[in-house]
């Protein structure tokens, strides 16, 4: 168990590799009760969120969600989150555990006097727990947990769903690169759903596997790969920034950065020989010079080699660039690669 954003969380239940493989090959369940949930509602909610977040929330139909970012005025990332539209006037946001207070304060600071009449923000984080069920067997697990007639949530959808065991936000999302779903429900029901997932065939998975799974996909982790000093353009998340909508916080800074050219870019890499796993803060060496530090790094259970991401100067960020990673005073060869770092073999 390790402290994580005010929670005591397991790094692993059995072993990171076993849990990782369970998610890639069968199904795993993560307790994500630490994550934060906000309810943003009112007739001004959509316009407000479109100003506060980078993606275009107006394209969502009720029942749909999107990955999006909350920026500071300088265009740096405060948090990455999923925004779900549950009805025309109601939105459900899932944010990082460590950022609940900061996100809430930031959102509230953006409320104008006019907004306060028509936008309500409720922090439901302490009332709400969640689990993520992830893996190729997620649909079978879902039937077993919810009953044979329950409808599996398609990718990036949300529904208020229920069984005799309680109601929930049921979401077709996850952060592992596998098919799956997440459910958020009052904390008192979480133990039931966790046990239900496990008895339906899921391996319980800890923070360790969550990290190796997301890193193999090249998904950023706030605090490691995202920072208030770097923009989503540098983080390779331009897809989730909609410049064509009306103003949003950070837009001017992003446009300036775009015009000036990015100084660096979050770049994935793979170690090319036998070496210790790269870890956060290891130096990235190019041409004998330390040019960056590793943002995220680990041993990839799927690939059997070290992998990571680092903000590399643009001229060194193209896939196939040879680099070195300094681990405990020694340099080991690596090569930059396209994301995702790991791609599942397609079934013939």
């Amino acid at each position: 168990m390790i402290p994580f954003a005010g929670w005591e969380m397991p790094v692993q239940y059995t072993s990171i590799t076993e849990e990782h493989q369970a998610v890639r090959n069968a199904c795993g369940v993560f307790d994500i009760s630490h994550m934060g949930q906000f309810l943003v509602s009112g007739k001004g909610a959509e316009a407000f969120l479109n100003r506060a977040l980078t993606n275009d929330i107006s394209v969502l139909q009720p029942g749909q969600g999107q990955y999006t970012l909350m920026l500071n005025e300088g265009g740096g990332v405060i948090d990455d989150l999923i925004a779900y539209k549950t009805s025309d006037r109601e939105f459900f946001l899932v944010v990082n555990a460590s950022m609940i207070d900061a996100d809430l304060a930031h959102l509230k600071s953006l409320l104008t006097d006019d907004d306060k009449e028509i936008v309500q923000i409720v922090n439901a984080s302490s009332l709400t727990g969640g689990i993520a069920v992830q893996g190729p067997r997620a649909r079978d697990v879902f039937k077993s947990m919810m009953g044979p007639s329950a409808v599996f949530p398609e990718k990036n959808t949300v529904q208020i769903a229920g069984t005799e065991h309680g109601i929930m936000w049921l979401c077709g999302t996850g952060y592992t690169g596998e098919e799956g779903f997440e459910l958020f429900t009052p904390t008192s029901r979480i133990e039931y759903w966790l046990r239900s997932a496990i008895s339906s065939g899921c391996s319980p998975c800890g923070l360790g596997a969550r990290d190796t799974l997301r890193l193999e996909m090249g998904y950023p982790l706030n605090g490691n790969d995202l920072s208030p000093l770097r923009s989503p353009l540098q983080a390779g998340l331009a897809f989730f920034v909609e410049f064509d909508k009306e103003d949003f916080v950070g837009k001017d800074s992003l446009l300036k950065q775009k015009a000036a050219g990015l100084p660096d870019k979050l770049t994935a890499f793979k170690m090319t020989g036998t070496c210790p796993p790269p870890r956060p803060h290891c130096g990235v060496v190019i041409g004998g010079q330390t040019v960056a530090e590793v943002a995220s790094g680990t041993q990839s259970p799927s690939l059997g080699c070290g992998i990571g991401m680092a903000y590399l100067p643009l001229e060194h960020s193209a896939p196939g660039t040879p680099i070195e990673i300094e681990i405990r005073g020694r340099n080991f060869p690596a090569v930059t690669v396209r994301k995702p770092i790991y791609q599942k073999p397609k079934l013939a």
Binding site: I16, G208, R279, Q299, P301
Partner: peptide, 9 residues
């Protein structure tokens, strides 16, 4: 010496 697991050094 140092022993690396997936989890830590």
């Amino acid at each position: 010496c140092t022993v690396d697991s997936v989890k830590s050094a």
